[in-house]
Computed example of a mutant assay.
Amino acid sequence: MPLTPLDIHNKEFSRRLRGYDEDEVNEFLDQVIKDYEIVIRENKELHNQLLALQEKLDHFANIEETLSKTIIVAQEAADEVKNNAKKEAQLIVKEAEKNADRIVNESLAKSRKIAMEVEELKKQASIYRARFRTLVEAQLDLLSQEGWESLDSTRDRSFEPEQSREVKEIY
């Protein structure tokens, strides 16, 4: 067990003949007591400082651990947000591709339908033209026949004025 200043102060030495000067020894012991008290006090202060620094170190270690965990959580959250954004972007792209395909398919279908309608209209126009040509040719053939001239000469004599007006309206 270490000595205390009180142990030093209470220490009694035995006396001998021709021993040390008692006052000198007492002065020296008083000086040792004072120095020893100073050393003990400094030791206590250093010990208290050590405890305070240890508490701070523990506190900062705690903060460091918390920050590390926070950084890990933040990184995981960032990764999750990034992954979700990628997934969402892929879904948007897929949907846009589907819409584009649908629009292209609808446009192709409309284009085919319009092409078929155009072809049908061309056929109908061709048929109408052929029929019209046939009708006109038939009318021209009818007009080129010989019987028309005789109708012109009889018309002037046999029709009354009212009948003549009706015929003119027809032409």
Rank of each mutant, 00 (worst) to 15 (best):
D30M: 10
V136I: 11
K69V: 11
E162D: 11
I71W: 08
N105W: 10
K34E: 11
K69D: 07
E42H: 08
V104A: 15
V39D: 08
L50K: 15
E55V: 03
P2T: 09
L135V: 07
E137S: 10
A138N: 12
I71F: 13
I38R: 11
A125M: 04
D79Q: 15
D35T: 05
G19S: 02
I33C: 01
N48F: 13
L151Y: 13
L17Y: 08
S111V: 03
N83K: 13
E27C: 01
G147D: 14
V81C: 13
L151W: 06
E42T: 12
L67D: 01
V32W: 04
Q124N: 07
Q75M: 11
V32K: 03
R15Y: 07
K44P: 00
E64I: 12
E76Y: 04
L57N: 14
I72V: 12
P5I: 00
L51I: 14
D101C: 06
S158L: 13
L67G: 02
L121M: 07
R18Y: 12
E166G: 03
Q54S: 10
N62C: 11
D152M: 09
Q163D: 02
E169H: 14
E95I: 03
K113A: 12
R15D: 01
A115T: 06
D141W: 04
R157H: 07
L121D: 10
N83C: 09
L6N: 11
A109M: 04
E27L: 09
R131C: 14
G19Q: 00
Q90Y: 02
I72W: 10
L3D: 03
R155L: 14
E12H: 09
S126L: 09
D79N: 14
P161Q: 10
L135D: 04
E160A: 07
V118P: 01
R15H: 05
V39I: 15
Y128S: 12
N48H: 08
A125N: 07
E45S: 06
R41S: 14
G19L: 00
A52R: 08
K98R: 14
E95N: 05
L151K: 08
